[in-house]
Design a protein around this nucleic acid. Structure first.
Lengths: 246, 246
DNA sequence: CGAAGCTTTGAACGAGTTCAAGATAGGTGG
DNA sequence: CCACCTATCTTGAACTCGTTCAAAGCTTCG
């Protein structure tokens, strides 16, 4: 099962037909290298993009050259579900690692959202969760100490990657540089480095060779004051629930 | 014309029928005093709330007692459009000034979104714009200096309030305390005070008696590096456009 | 092997915080 | 109408978390 379907199933109960449709829509894919632009700010893509493999991010550039990363996009995440309604991208999408990215043509998405209620619901669920994650990031950047914030980000990533089956025993692929981490949490690469080292020395994580191991998830969550509610993965969010998959 | 309709018309072209429906839905209203909770984190409201008059905010509280304001809610804004899909509020809604708040029962919203395509589109547009605003706030908290950020926030509020007709000659009601401003931009009340004073001394704004006057909008925008694109109020975002209303 | 990018370390610096006190303003009860 | 109370705003001074600048190690990869 592809990561997109895997994720969508968290958002609504899908029929066998829905599932087949969802998988079919992700056929048309394209590969990108690391650190490439997938969509630029101001563009108006005609279809919808979704990450199948690799890490990407939403980001915004400021006149002074600094960058703010607005979201990590991991397998199963949509890049631009909103753009058909909003008209143009108000931020860019770039890869962090090499990526496979699916492209769903506009007409397929429209056909889908006009016929398949559950799938539509799952799609909206996904953009609403993105928004909830964004809120949590704002809390982090605004009110958390550097260390708690980095810890929180790691906890979040751990949970999100688990949903799409990319974590094994607390260990996952982490192609994000400390500089990119810094752009996400609104700090400097230098300071992120010091924070990461401290987390290492506390025995909470191991980070090397683009691999992140969470050594003590409980302690990390406690430090971060992490509560996964905002990811809305929990149980009965919707009336009916047929087959939870996974 | 009520603020909700006024705002929705920015998101999609509405028929006379759509408009009537939208206005009717906001009949059922309730009044709140200043600094009251409207919806608490974790609650699962059965309908949808919208601000008709006054200022409110989304917010999140941290264990250490600090607060992060996640959004200003001004007349025309919905509080919890997402909750029917996400299941529970992952943040609270509180008033900042006395407010009139409309309550649209679940079944009305459902009836509407199953029949009226344009209205549905306008509703989704509205939550997507909320998300875009959130992204801009993240950029501000993460990467802008205190002064630019406060200036940016003022520019944004000016534009948003204009949409619902609450600005006259650069002057508008501003019931937000400096402490609340601080919770929005992730700073201290003390520092916000110093920033506000500086903006005053530069002749950019006047702020007194809960009233904010933007004295030099051009200069304020320039300082803030403000570009209203992200508010997606611009022109032809959608294919058809019948009557743009004002 | 060499270049380029990432990580690590140190030391000086600064934007924003913290703490504390005083000034203003609006609202209430007498 | 005044006295008082509380919340907000204002100011100053010390302090700190995170920045900046700079240089040195480490990887990766052609």
């Amino acid at each position: 099962m592809g990561p997109v379907l895997r994720k969508l199933e968290c958002g609504a109960a899908l029929s066998a037909d829905d599932r087949r449709t969802a998988e079919l829509m992700c056929q048309n894919e394209r590969s990108f290298g690391a650190r490439e632009d997938v969509i630029r700010e101001g563009e108006q893509p005609q279809g919808v993009h979704a990450v199948l493999e690799g890490f990407a991010c939403r980001y915004k550039l400021l006149p002074n050259g600094s960058r703010q990363i607005l979201a990590w996009l991991i397998p199963g995440d949509f890049c631009d579900l909103h753009v058909s309604i909003l008209g143009a991208m108000d931020h860019g999408i770039a890869t962090l690692s090499p990526c496979r990215i699916a492209y769903l043509p506009q007409r397929d998405v429209e056909a889908m959202t006009s016929h398949r209620t559950n799938l539509t619901r799952a799609l909206w669920w996904s953009t609403l969760v993105d928004e909830a994650v964004l809120r949590q990031w704002l809390v982090g950047v605004g009110r958390r100490s550097a260390e708690k914030q980095v810890a929180h980000l790691i906890c979040e990533l751990l949970v999100r990657l688990r949903v799409v089956g990319l974590v094994e025993g607390g260990v996952f692929d982490f192609p994000i540089t400390q500089g990119e981490l810094a752009d996400a949490v609104g700090l400097t690469a230098v300071h992120v480095n010091r924070v990461v080292q401290h987390l290492r020395h506390c025995g909470l994580i191991r980070l090397q060779d683009r691999t992140l191991a969470v050594l003590d998830e409980g302690a990390l969550r406690e430090l971060a004051e992490f509560n996964a509610n905002y990811l809305h993965l929990g149980e009965p969010r919707s009336k009916e629930r047929a087959n939870s998959g996974n």
